[in-house]
Structures are given as structure tokens and as C-alpha cells.
Design a protein around this nucleic acid. Structure first.
Lengths: 365, 365
DNA sequence: CTGAGTCAGTAAAACGATTTAGTAGATGGG
DNA sequence: CCCATCTACTAAATCGTTTTACTGACTCAG
């Protein structure tokens, strides 16, 4: 219950009282010209070439003087353009979405666009309704971040980490094969032969693709993933708790492993806690690799070795693609898939596997 | 450089081709009625009482059948309402802003509002331009999150962690006196008498107020803060690096301290790293208290003791206040200040001071 | 039978721009 | 001197609603 301290009457305001903005009509009346003329001149229309320089001067000066700004809604209505995009995220504060949105914003604002954010928190009803609400708000395009999207709205859509083959959607994905290769080759080279994997929740768009890539790559490189040593995250909390629980499950199987590949950095952090509580040191006993490289990955102790996704870049790319598609018109062809490359960031949560070939330390239950 | 895989012609789309939405005029023509009638009925205007139930039925059914949605821009233009707010943040992905925006969004979307986000990254020019751009976009109000705001735009503004006395702004602040008391009483009770403090950067709105509160409270409680043991964060990176550097400065003074109060959780994390590198254990040798309670505070190892700000709640409160002020009209009085209460979250980064009264361990350089 | 009051709507203005299609007057070529 | 062209503009339509101010046909009381 917030405390209230002191009210103020608005009319005490001392600064200039921000008078109602002037309309084109008023400005025209003031100059003794028609709104048409002003519009032509101010928008530098080719038809304005017949207006003498003197008149143009007068118009520009008056516009400056009265601080004329075209009314955005009026202009949008007329032009049938809103210069606005919608951005769908699961949750803004999950470390992942915020980074992507950052990249989106940087590009959009530079191009004169703004965007609406809507967080669906994986709720079915919101996943259905928000895209429609955004469309009603006349957004010219949509960016879905780590969000399953299966509608057909008739506007350009980019899906960051989208993998579904939906018409009108450009999927922007990480090269997961390469990601798996980077991580597993590194682990293999450091003597790790038995790997445990924490898969993502079903609702995460990357879950299936990433697991597939890891499975194939492990087979190719001769890294063993015992069937019991691949467990999914459960629940939709964006906290390390889920990784903690998953890791306890892994330990409970009794199957040996020297390295753990977590679905993301947050679950990797939970995993490290679970390992430590079980009396295992990271990285001496078990190496842990995260995914994403969110800010807290480098802050953590030990700092996380992780597969970096260029999240900001993916956001930028999504924004760029959608604007490009808007400019090209709905009939133009568009890319179905854009792929970005991961990078392995080696920090302190990974090390050589204990003893080359020596029997893996039995896990405590 | 992203790879492009496969283009698709849009006309292959198999789903219903999302035909252009119908306008009121078209719907009216189809029913053989005037747009006025439809508008009255669909908006449940009191004037629609004279329209017989049968006609109303027909109208509702046709609206359903043709999936009629009033054009948002047209309606906004007419009503001079945009149902949109602007939100100014320093940076979305700093752990703090995203939480506040979360609270803002939850409230706004429930009330039928959307919002534009703009991140100024502490750049002077953007700080000046973004509010104006938002105003041009016809936002009905503004929320500034941890952002110095000194303009006068003629719309309701709420400043989360704002402390400046600017007309038309409602400041939403934490009870800093209480925050300092919670942290320092706790430390005092655990035998800490010599405190080091990491102050915020100049651009952070809370910096001055928080430091003032800590200084006064320390004096009141008999906790010593040696003048050399209060250093500010430098640079605008939102990473623990800044706290790391600040802590090195603190250690370099040679002055003894058993506890460190950091400006926020991120800098506390950097501080812990610096302490550890200097051969000091946390919490055994030095207790560290953070501020904010962002997600990574609880993930960290050791988990951070910290002063929690109810960030989500502050966002909600900001949104609520602005909508309320919009509803009340510009002439109505409004609160200048709303205060929320902090909470001390005790985790593993704090403990009893080493030895009751025993000389503090000399810091290694 | 008249006037007032309902009923069931409609026409037109407004919101604030942009755009299309003119027009009145000056200039100029033949 | 006549027609065409150019100059410097403007009227009106349009975008899709909402709102204000009507209207014509009935009904009913007196």
C-alpha cells in the first residue's frame, strides 16, 4: 500500500502550458492559404514546384513558429500506414526476450517505427488474442520472439527462434547443428564421453530442434548420451529452479556423466547448484555448458561456458526483415528462413574430464 | 551474415487469405442501413434505444459474420484518444527496467491500453527527442523508468524512481530511509561496524537519495563509513565490471571494513568477485548486501542478501496512476509522490562479522 | 382534428491530414 | 487576337469512425 505525499493542482505548473498543437487548417488560415498548399509544401510534394520560393519560406517559417506537427493519427488514417510493429514475447524479464527486443528496438526507432510489446506468458488465450489485438491496432507487421505462432493475419511476420512452417512467416533461427558441434567437439576434446542433457520445455520453440541437433552430433562424434540422461525442464518458471530439479533427476538415475549440456544459462545455473549440493564440484567433477549467454552467465560463479546466440542481432534481423517485407508489398517473395551463427564462449564451468579414461566417479545419490 | 534458405511466394499461402477488413460503410450498405445506425447499435449508445430489437439483431449478426472491427486509427482520430502510453527506459535488458515494464504491461493491457517503449541509453539527445516523438505519436501519458525527465508535455507522467520536483510528474519512489534502516540494522546486529558503500552513477535517479539515506542511517545507528570507503560506480555498462572496479578502489584504500553495501545487485556481484580475487571470502570475511533483488541475485553463488524493491508493483502503480490521471482530466489534482516499501531478503552473502570486536583483518592489496 | 411525443432511423459535420482534379489569371507563340 | 501553357493556387473527396441535428411516419391525448 503506497503512501501518498502531497497533491498538486496542475494549474500551478510554471513551465509553458504546452498549448494544444495547431492543425494544418489553423496554420493555413493564419497564412491566408489553403491547407492543400501547406501540405504540398511541407511534404515537399512534386506538385509544390509551382509554389514560389517566397511563399514556401512563409510556410516553413510559420510551421516553425507555431511548432506545427502533423497529427500522427490523421496522417496514418489517410495513408493507411501506422509505422508500428507488434512484438510478441513470452515474458520480458527472462533475460532472453529483453535482449532480442533491444535489437529490434534499435533498428526500428532508427527507421521511424515504434512497436507494441505483448507478453503472453505461454497462456493459450493470450497467444490467440494478442496477435489479433495487435492487428486491430493496425500494426504493419509482427515479430514473435520464442513464441509459437500459427495464425494468418495478412501482415509480414518474423519469428525469432521460430521453426514452424507457417505461411507469411520468416523464421530467424540459430544454426543448431553448428551450436551442437561447437559444444560437443569442445567437450570431446576435453575428454568427455558421457554427456547428460537438459532439454527445454515443450513450449519453447527451440526445444525440439536443439535436442535433435545434439542427439545427431553426439552420435557423430561418439559422445554417449544415455537415454536416461536426457530430461526436459518442467514448469514454466524462468528461474534456475527448473534446472535444479532436472539435474536432481539426472543424478537420481545413477548413470555416470562427466559433462552436462543445459538448455539455457538459467537452467545451467540451477544445475550447478544441484551438482554442488550432491557433493560434486563444477568443473572438476562435472563440466556444465549453458546456452544463450545472457548477462548473468558471465556474472555467475563459476562463470558459465555457454553457446552464445547473437540475440541482439537476431532481433535486428527480424526488424529489418519485416520492414523490408512491408516495403516490398504483400505480393513479393520473402525469405522463409534466415540463419545466424552461434559462438562458443569458454569460461570457468568446464574443464578436462577427470582422468583420461579412468572410471567416472560414481555419483552420490 | 545470415544465410538465406529458400524463398516463398506469398500467394502459395493456403490459409484463408485474410481479406481486407470491412468498413462500417460497407457493412451498412450490405444491410441497407446508414453507418450511423450501425455505429449507435454497435457502441450501445443510448440513442440506440429507439432501434428495434430485430434490427439490432441483424446488425450484430452481420458484424459477426463479416468479422467487423472498427478501424482503430479512425476511432482514435475521432475520439482524440489513442489508448497508448509511452514508456522511457535506460535499457530494457538491465534486469531492472524489464521488471518494471512487466508490471506496467500487465496493468495496461488489462485496461485496454498498449505502450511504446523507447530506450535512451542515457544519451542526452535521445532523452530529449524520445518524449517528443512519443507525444507526436499521440500517447496519452508517459512513464519514465529510472530516467531523468524535465520536460513539460501537457500529459500525465509517472516517474518510477524519479525524485525531481517537476510539474505534472508523479514520482514513484522507494522508501529509502526504510531501505537503509533495514540493511544497516541487520548488519549492525550482526556485529558490523565498518561499512563500505558503492554509490550509483550520477545518471541513476536513485543515486543521491539512496546515499543520503545510508549516510544518515549509518550515523544514527553508529555504523562507520570512512569517507574513503564510499565510491561511485563509473561508466554506464550494466555489467558487474563496474562494481568490480569500484571494489578494487575500496580495497586499495587500505581502510578496514567488514561489510559492503552495493548500489545494486549487479555491482554486488562484481564486488564479490573482486573481494574473492583479493583473497577475501564472502560472507566470512566481508558481508555483501545488494539492492533491487533482480532475478540473478538469487541465482548467484553465494546467493545475494539484498534490499528488494517491489519493481513489478512500482510499474503497476505507475500505470495505474497515469490511467487514473488521464481519466480525471488535466485540471484535476494528482499525487506528486507515491512511496513503496522495501524488504530485506537475507541470503548467503552476509554473515556475522568476524570476531566480536576483534581487529578487522587487514586487507591484502 | 390538431399538436405533442415517440419510433426508426438518416444526413452531414467532424477528427486532421493527403490527394485528385480543377481554376483563375498571366504569359507567349503564331 | 486566340489558343495553349504555365503559375499559383484551391475545392472537394478520402481515410473510417462518431456525434449532432434533423426527418418523416405514427400514435395518442384533448
Amino acid at each position: 500500500m503506497p503512501r501518498r505525499n502531497g497533491n498538486r493542482k496542475n494549474n500551478e505548473a510554471k513551465a509553458a502550458p504546452a498549448s494544444r498543437p495547431v492543425s494544418l487548417k489553423e496554420l493555413a488560415a493564419h497564412l491566408g492559404l489553403s491547407p492543400t498548399t501547406l501540405s504540398l509544401v511541407l511534404n515537399d510534394s512534386p506538385l509544390a514546384r509551382s509554389i514560389p520560393a517566397g511563399t514556401q519560406q512563409r510556410i516553413f517559417e510559420a510551421a516553425r513558429e507555431f511548432n506545427y506537427r502533423p497529427h500522427f493519427l490523421a496522417r496514418s488514417l489517410r495513408a493507411q500506414r501506422s509505422f508500428t510493429l507488434g512484438v510478441l514475447v513470452p515474458e520480458l524479464s527472462d533475460g532472453y526476450s529483453a535482449m532480442v527486443v533491444n535489437g529490434i528496438e534499435e533498428y526500428l526507432l532508427r527507421e521511424g517505427y515504434f512497436y507494441f510489446v505483448a507478453s503472453h506468458r505461454h497462456r493459450r488465450d493470450l497467444l490467440d488474442r494478442y496477435p489479433k489485438m495487435l492487428l486491430e491496432r493496425c500494426v504493419e507487421g509482427l515479430i514473435a520472439v520464442d513464441t509459437p505462432y500459427r495464425q494468418h493475419l495478412g501482415i509480414p511476420v518474423a519469428a525469432v527462434s521460430g521453426h514452424e512452417d507457417v505461411p507469411e512467416v520468416t523464421n530467424i533461427v540459430l544454426n543448431h547443428k553448428r551450436a551442437a558441434t561447437l559444444a560437443l567437439e569442445y567437450l570431446r576434446q576435453h575428454g568427455h564421453e558421457r554427456l547428460a542433457v537438459i532439454k527445454g520445455q515443450d513450449f519453447s520453440s527451440d526445444t525440439r530442434v536443439r535436442w535433435e541437433a545434439i542427439r545427431m552430433t553426439a552420435k557423430r562424434l561418439g559422445v554417449l548420451i544415455h537415454p536416461k540422461l536426457a530430461v526436459p525442464l518442467e514448469g514454466d518458471s524462468p528461474s534456475p529452479e527448473t534446472g535444479y530439479v532436472a539435474t536432481q533427476q539426472l543424478l537420481a538415475t545413477g548413470e555416470p556423466f562427466t559433462a552436462l549440456f543445459a538448455f539455457n544459462d538459467i537452467s545451467a545455473i540451477g544445475a550447478i547448484r544441484a551438482l554442488r549440493e550432491a557433493g560434486l564440484n563444477v568443473p572438476e567433477d562435472v563440466s556444465v555448458v549453458g546456452f544463450d549467454d545472457v548477462d548473468s552467465a558471465s556474472f555467475h560463479n563459476p562463470a558459465l561456458t555457454t553457446v552464445r546466440q547473437p540475440l541482439r542481432e537476431m532481433g535486428r534481423l527480424a526488424a529489418e526483415t519485416v520492414l523490408q517485407r512491408i516495403a516490398n508489398g504483400p505480393a513479393a517473395p520473402y525469405p522463409e528462413l534466415l540463419m545466424v551463427e552461434p559462438e562458443l564462449i569458454i569460461r570457468q564451468s568446464t574443464a578436462k574430464a577427470r582422468g583420461a579414461g579412468a572410471p567416472t566417479r560414481r555419483m552420490r545419490r
